[in-house]
Amino acid sequence: MSEMIVITREELNPDDFTCLVRRDENGAVVTFLGTTRDTFEGKRVIRLEYEAYEEMAYRKLEEIRQELKAEFGLEDVAIGHRIGVVDIGEISLVVAVGSPHRSEAFYACHEAVNRLKHSVPIWKKEFYEGGEHWVACEDHEFNEGAEAAPQAAPAGND
């Protein structure tokens, strides 16, 4: 497995990932940081906790890397995901893309984040004042509250 993918309980340093994708062939580097937000549906979030099925998460992240390299004709994609307890304002995700041209770097970085939120088995739990909540993508979420409508089979994104 590539060292271009890291799943760790330690703090993520974005420079580590940016450095991995900087090469003389590349004219553009885009680095995305996902940082932990302090509110959820109007409630104050105190901290977050991420849990991963690590073996599969590495595998799915590597699949995404390979897809993006093929689709956007670039060589350099590095992804870091933090797990465990993450305090507010810290970095939980880093995606760095290096490409000869900027357009591909922006698109590939955007796609990487979208895809990993849909297919990589990493879960986020938000702890807020008065409760806790596992977060899911809206289009995957099963709304199980009393008011929830029955869900049909996933029909793709809106």
Partner: peptide
């Protein structure tokens, strides 16, 4: 493994380029 819905962020209405 039983896989609950995966984590985080808003569902993105964008389509791929």
């Amino acid at each position: 493994c039983f896989i609950p819905p995966v984590s985080g962020g808003q569902a993105n209405p964008d389509t791929s380029p």
